[in-house]
């Protein structure tokens, strides 16, 4: 049986793991919202500060699941496939890059290297030293069917885990939903509730949509 063993939401209003709210943005803070989460989780990863918001969201999501859903994630280095999606690719960073050359004709290389949406998967791979498959797709809205079948296909061919999710971030809106899916030996009790005490959720299209909708619509 495949389960979503941990998941994380970050919106403009809150940060939650397995549905439970961990933190809400402090209006008095001198730091960005993502930086507040980084400080709260006590993550030590200086590269984080150079990343764009998409990549930061990816690193936060994986670290929050590791820390607060208590998943060790000690997979083999080729055992994890990554699959992320959003609607506007890297548009927010693209706009920043465009501004860097529109003003002074001095385009910023440090921004340019983030003008691809799949950089989020690259940053997670670097953080965790994972050599598995990485995919980024663009779709109009979170499609639980797409993710469910991707997870099933990749776990069927031997993956130890699939990490993925929806990461749409722009000036107006932060929609981050990141999950960890793992094959878990089937429980002996057939009438298991959808959500067990440890927060793990049986994988299914409906179930994935339900947990996505806990903090996003």
């Amino acid at each position: 049986m495949i389960k979503i063993t941990g998941y994380c939401h970050i919106t403009d209003l809150l940060c939650a793991v397995n549905g439970k709210i961990l933190l809400q943005p402090s209006p008095d803070s001198e730091h960005s919202w993502f930086r507040q989460i980084y400080n709260f989780a006590d993550i030590q990863y200086p590269k984080f500060h150079k990343m764009d918001a998409l990549a930061q969201a990816g690193v936060l999501g994986v670290e929050l699941i590791r820390l607060f859903a208590a998943r060790p994630m000690d997979f083999q280095d080729e055992g994890v496939d990554l699959v992320f999606a959003n609607r506007y690719a890297s548009a927010a960073t693209d706009r920043r890059f465009q501004a860097s050359y529109a003003d002074h004709m001095s385009p910023s290389p440090a921004i340019f290297v983030y003008t691809l949406p799949n950089i989020i998967t690259g940053e997670i791979a670097i953080l965790k030293k994972w050599y598995g498959e990485n995919t980024f797709v663009v779709m109009p809205e979170f499609d639980p069917g797409f993710f469910t079948s991707y997870i099933q296909r990749h776990i069927a061919r031997g993956c130890e885990a699939v990490i993925g999710g929806w990461v749409q971030i722009d000036e107006e809106n932060t929609e981050v939903f990141i999950f960890l899916a793992e094959p878990i030996p089937a429980e002996p009790i057939p009438a298991e509730p959808i959500q067990a005490d440890d927060g793990a959720v049986r994988l299914g299209v409906r179930e994935l949509l339900e947990i996505y909708q806990q903090h996003l619509s």
């Binding site: 002074h104 001095s106 385009p107 910023s108 290389p109 440090a110 290297v113």
Partner: peptide, 12 residues
């Protein structure tokens, strides 16, 4: 990449 940003800095 920072080294390339330094080049931008020098020009800007």
């Amino acid at each position: 990449i920072d080294a390339l940003e330094m080049i931008v800095l020098l020009e800007k």
